[in-house]
Nucleic acid binder design. Structure first.
Length: 423
RNA sequence: GGAGAGUUGGCCGAGUAGGUCGAAGGCGCUCGCCUGCUAAGCGAGUAUACUGUUAGUAACGGUAUCGCGAGUUCAAAUCUCGCACUCUCCGCCA
């Protein structure tokens, strides 16, 4: 949620930012509405002050057995007026809010201005594309050949985009989750979290999924609960409506969760194998920081995610997303794309975002400064650390052997208990 | 799923024949005093949001908030209705 006070003070700044984010701006409507609302509030508060005062007088009169009927009558009239004005205010607030909640966060100044993913800027990379002396297969061919992934049966059970891992494939999936979670907890000092996978509307609103992205989530209608698209949603909401201690910041959480996405409108794109799924697993890192620290933390968060790929020996590149490609709530975001030699493509395995106070405003997450006891919104950040399906793609394709088998990266072997997947 | 009890400020906990209750008291915390040190003691302070005056993120004022929402009333923490959550018992179940 954008800050209406700042918007009031500097609308042009917001207009420029929103335009870079490719958002429709109705700022004039918001500002006019806000103006009207404030004058009404002032007026109504004045009347309420009178009512409070006179009501006390009535109480005193009655106690002294004196006649108060004149005043009561007066207040009856006043009460009607107040009620009408309160209704008007509520209506104005509804209107104002309905627009405000659909406005995305502004891009940070260090995010390149641009329209689409072609304007994203590669800022760094690690490792390089490995060379092979034999003909490469893509992950689906490898996996089917090894019998570790059964997409047709997944489709039979649930529909397309629901993977069914079998045997060593299932074990590899579980190993990756444990490896990544242990890694972040033990090496990067995150607090491990195991969150609910179903969340209510307030929670989905807090991180910015609602109201605009409702169509992208699975809804359990009978209970009005959403299947989470990422652990970011429940984990960020841990501190919803709370005032945190300054000394608790930065707060670092790492959580595994299943992720469920309807991927509405993306049919026909990246459909092969594990590249785009309705259900997948991910370890997510979430941090709460003081405003002045968030961009330093953002860099560290990126490193924490990179660390996973480096340890697994996978080549990747990092993109600084342009304003137009940033998600609704993000001010800045790095995407990490891992190289898949068989598909000959980079796949996004992690998004590392700084939301500044955008989510904190929506979810009302604040902290108290020790110096002056003032309350402020925290900054929230998160990064995938990382999502498994495309990681599996990269592992299978990178470590495939001429005979169709796949060698397990060293760091994973204590988790898989095997060092090779073969027929 | 059925029946009952509950939800007050950072915590504990008063407060129901509606009125001076943003809310007693205690604990905690902050500042000051006192004191070889510590502890104890004494004094003061200790919510958030919106809004106004103002050059002011300073100061002062107003409004709202006692789980959430609506209602009754001149006036509601206190009455009525709906909802959420917690606890207990029964049923069901991994």
């Amino acid at each position: 949620m954008l800050d209406i006070k700042k918007l009031r003070e500097n609308p042009e700044f917001f207009r420029t930012g929103l335009k870079a984010k490719r958002a429709e701006t109705k700022l004039d409507e918001i500002l006019a509405n806000d103006e009207k609302r404030r004058s009404l509030v002032t007026e109504t508060d004045l009347l309420k002050a009178i009512r409070n005062k006179v009501s006390k007088e009535i109480g005193d009169l009655k106690k002294n057995k004196a006649d108060a009927s004149d005043k009561i009558e007066e207040m009856q009239e006043l009460g009607k007026k107040i009620k009408a004005m309160d209704n008007q205010i509520a209506e104005l607030e509804d209107q104002l809010n309905s627009i405000l909640v659909t406005l995305p966060n502004l891009p940070h100044e260090s995010a390149p201005v641009g329209f689409s993913d072609t304007d994203n800027v590669e800022v760094s990379s690690w490792g390089k594309k490995p060379l092979y002396t034999f003909e490469l297969k893509d992950h689906l061919d490898i996996a089917e050949n090894l019998g570790i992934l059964d997409m047709p049966r997944g489709a039979k059970i649930s529909g397309s985009g629901f993977p069914l891992y079998m045997g060593k494939g299932a074990r590899l999936e579980r190993a990756l989750i444990n490896f990544m979670l242990d890694f972040h907890v033990e090496k990067h000092n995150y607090i491990e979290v195991y969150p609910p996978f179903l969340v209510n509307r307030d929670t989905a609103f807090g991180t910015g999924q609602l109201p605009k992205m409702e169509e992208d989530m699975y809804l359990c209608n009978a209970d009005d609960l959403f299947l989470i698209p990422t652990a970011e949603v429940p984990v960020t909401n841990i501190h919803r409506d709370e005032i945190m201690k300054e000394s608790d910041l930065p707060k670092k959480y790492a959580a595994f969760s299943g992720c469920f996405r309807r991927e509405a409108g993306s049919y026909g794109k990246d459909t092969r194998g594990l590249s785009r799924l309705h259900q997948f697993n991910k370890v997510e890192m979430v941090q709460f920081t003081k405003p002045e620290e968030s961009y330093t933390v953002h860099q560290k968060l990126l490193q924490d995610a990179e660390d996973i790929l480096q340890t697994l020996g996978l080549h990747y590149r990092i993109l600084n997303l342009c304003s137009g490609d940033l998600s609704f709530a993000a001010a800045k975001c790095y995407d990490i794309e891992v190289w898949a030699p068989g598909t000959h493509k980079y796949f996004e395995v992690s998004s590392v975002s700084n939301f500044e106070d955008f989510q904190a405003r929506r979810a009302n997450i604040r902290f108290r400064r020790e110096s002056d006891q003032k309350v402020e919104f925290v900054h929230t950040l998160n990064g995938s650390g990382v999502a498994t399906p495309r990681l599996v793609i990269a592992i299978l394709e990178t470590y495939q052997q001429p005979d169709g088998s796949v060698v397990i990266p060293e760091a994973l072997r204590s988790y898989t208990s095997f060092d090779k997947i073969e027929k």
